[in-house]
């Protein structure tokens, strides 16, 4: 099932290998595949604040699904203080206060390692909780599968900055897809998401990165990655790209040079013909 996705090899192929990991929503959530891999895609942990969850809960009609910034948020990672911890035989519950609000957390304990893990969690401690969001009987809560004490408190700063970063990433990707009128395939979106996320990762001011320059580069790359362009042995002449987009030739040339430098496209028969490095 994955083989056709990875057959491409080269830079494009390997980027999709990495996109599923970590906290970024992977393309797998949008690819219609078998039930198992779909649910696994949905399970990517999304760093969230309680405030975001409450807003998603209030605005959704279906109280068992959470969609935040256009991404199904079945699994979430939260960071906050433990309050009102209650231990029972089969489960431990507490409220997590992350400063933006409080949410109920349940952790089912089945074996001694899980019991020990939860015994170490005390009221007032800062913890990182990973779990799935559930709506039940008009209330929503988090069923945790991991509760870990925070040891280095820089993690607190990091978590909330990450919430902002992922929010930004998810809202921006949606804009890109709409702007390209859905003409791009999921694979191309995937690759763009990966590339744009890297330079922004540690930037304190991510909106700056999406300037007009980036837009032209995206447009140019889209032309090269259309199926008709991929099918042509010698690729596209730069003048053809200029005609297609109706933008100044020097701007297009700059974008082409950029994509050659980063390895998205390569020259074929002469210095005017280029082809996408992605396999058609």
């Amino acid at each position: 099932m994955y083989s056709n996705q990875y057959d491409g090899g080269g830079g494009g192929g390997s980027s999709s290998l990495f996109s599923g990991g970590g906290f970024m929503p992977s393309q797998a959530t949008q690819t219609p595949e078998s039930g198992f891999s779909k649910s696994r895609g949905v399970q990517t942990l999304l760093p969230l604040t309680v405030k975001q969850i409450r807003e998603a809960y209030q605005s959704s009609d279906d109280k068992s699904n959470f969609v935040i910034d256009g991404v199904e948020a079945a699994a979430a990672r939260l960071l906050g203080r433990v309050v009102n911890k209650v231990e029972r035989v089969t489960d431990v519950s507490f409220a997590l206060d992350d400063g933006t609000g409080r949410i109920d957390v349940h952790r089912w304990v089945q074996d001694t390692s899980e019991t020990n893990e939860m015994a170490a969690i005390q009221n007032g401690m800062y913890v990182v909780v990973g779990g799935s969001l559930k709506g039940f009987q008009g209330k929503n809560h988090l069923v945790a599968y991991s509760v870990r004490p925070v040891i280095d408190f820089n993690e607190l700063t990091h978590h909330f900055i990450e919430c902002i970063h992922v929010h930004l990433e998810n809202t921006r990707q949606k804009v890109q897809v709409v702007a390209s009128m859905g003409s791009t395939t999921p694979f191309i979106n995937d690759q763009k998401g990966y590339q744009t996320s890297i330079p922004n990762q540690f930037s304190t001011n991510p909106p700056m990165a999406a300037g007009p320059e980036t837009d032209i580069r995206d447009l140019v790359l889209n032309v090269f990655q259309e199926p008709s362009s991929l099918a042509r042995e010698h690729g596209l002449h730069v003048d053809e790209v200029v005609r297609r987009l109706g933008l100044p030739g020097d701007k297009i040339r700059d974008a082409v040079d950029y994509h050659v430098d980063v390895g998205n496209i390569y020259s074929t028969i002469d210095e005017y013909h280029y082809k996408s490095a992605c396999n058609g």
Binding site: K51, I53, R54, G99, T100, G101, R102, K139, H141
Partner: peptide, 10 residues
């Protein structure tokens, strides 16, 4: 879930 008394980062 209660978001009535948030603590603002300052």
């Amino acid at each position: 879930m209660d978001t009535s008394t948030p603590a603002v980062f300052v």
